[in-house]
Design a protein around this nucleic acid. Structure first.
Length: 332
DNA sequence: TCAGACAACGCGAATTTGAC
DNA sequence: GTCAAATTCGCGTTGTCTGA
């Protein structure tokens, strides 16, 4: 655990004590990497999970991890936005942040503090260089195609849909950040689980808006009759999750369409509607998803589901991770 | 000939400035 | 205080050089 994590724990607990007047004790256990906190007045002991940055996507990942935690889990983070607090309340996740916001529901104890703000400088301080849109495209290609990192730069660029200069910069950055040791000698991508987590967190903000093409209305019959292959299109999000798991009935349909987007909209007589049930995205990769002819790659389905923040979608994302994604992340 | 590296440039987003 | 124009900044692409 780094010093920033320790600082976050200390600050979050101090603020919780100030806001509630409760007496709180912290103690390390195991290899000193894990912390428990005890709220003395209520004789409650929480197992803490520290995640400095949180958004909807990361909250989904954390929520799935917390299901495996024994005891009472407590998430500690730097800042929970008001929008994120709503998702936390819906999912009844125990959270405290360094700004003094908190949501803890362990009957008879119930704490809900919101509205506290973090100072701007600290909120946006980045630990590592972030990945931008083109870098995320490159990383997506690498994660979906194990071993691709050892291919020529121009081939990677071709598959990722970016310029070859971008691939070079991205691979060097991956090397610098410890994901691609020995890049010069065609080393293997490592730490893929963490890299996937970072990709999933950044995808909704950095990549998805860039390829958003429009929102439309579509009915069940149109969906049944849609020939996705004709448009080089692939179902994503909830629609793809339904096909992969049979666990989910889609509420919003997401589709990634190749070059024929205009034709896709015209031929299907789609009407634009900002609240419509069909989200049309531009396809941003140039490789085949072997085994998934009608849907996007499970990694993208996973990211789309987590980005919604919906409980059922988060559960489905976990199923897809275990069933379809784990093997891509395994070091090989 | 091909792949990697790098500099220069274009473009769009963000920020600043100034007029009203 | 608001809005538009100007400026700045940085990401991503292109073109080209170098070495194997």
């Amino acid at each position: 655990m780094g010093h920033r994590e320790r600082d976050a724990i200390d600050k979050a607990i101090r603020n919780l004590e100030t806001e509630t007047g409760l007496k709180i004790r912290t103690f390390a256990f195991g290899d000193q990497e894990d912390f428990k906190i005890q709220i003395a007045d209520h004789d409650l002991i929480f197992n803490t999970e520290v995640r400095l940055f949180l958004n909807k996507a990361r909250l989904g990942i954390v929520l799935n991890n917390l299901r495996n935690v024994t005891g009472i889990p407590l998430l500690i983070t730097e800042y929970v936005t008001p929008e994120l607090m709503k998702v936390i309340e819906e999912n009844e996740i125990n959270v405290i942040d360094t700004a003094g916001n908190a949501y803890i529901k362990v009957p008879p104890l119930f704490i809900k503090i919101k509205g506290n703000k973090l100072d701007e400088v600290r909120r946006f301080r980045a630990v590592r260089r972030p990945f931008y849109a083109a870098a995320l495209q490159t990383i997506y290609a690498l994660l979906c195609n194990p071993g691709l990192e050892r291919a020529p730069i121009r081939e990677i660029a071709d598959l990722a849909g970016v310029a070859h200069g971008t691939v070079h910069i991205t691979l060097k950055e991956l090397e610098k950040q410890g994901y691609l040791p020995d890049y010069e000698n065609k080393g293997k991508l490592i730490n893929k689980e963490e890299l996937l987590e970072r990709w999933v967190i950044l995808y909704p903000d950095k990549l998805k808006p860039k390829f958003f093409a429009g929102r439309y209305n579509i009915n069940e019959e149109q969906i049944r009759n849609l020939d996705v292959n004709f448009y080089d299109a692939h179902w994503g999000g909830e629609a793809a999750a339904e096909k992969m798991t049979n666990y989910l009935r889609p509420y919003i349909y997401t589709i990634y369409v190749g070059e024929r987007q205009g034709e896709f909209v015209l031929r299907n007589r789609l009407r634009r509607d900002t609240q419509g049930n069909l989200v049309v995205m531009k396809k941003f990769w140039n490789f085949k998803h072997f085994g998934y002819p009608e849907t996007t790659h499970p990694i993208l389905v996973y990211a789309d589901l987590l980005a919604t923040g919906d409980t059922r979608n988060i559960e489905t994302a976990k199923l897809i991770y275990e069933k379809e994604i784990a093997r891509y992340i395994a070091e090989n």
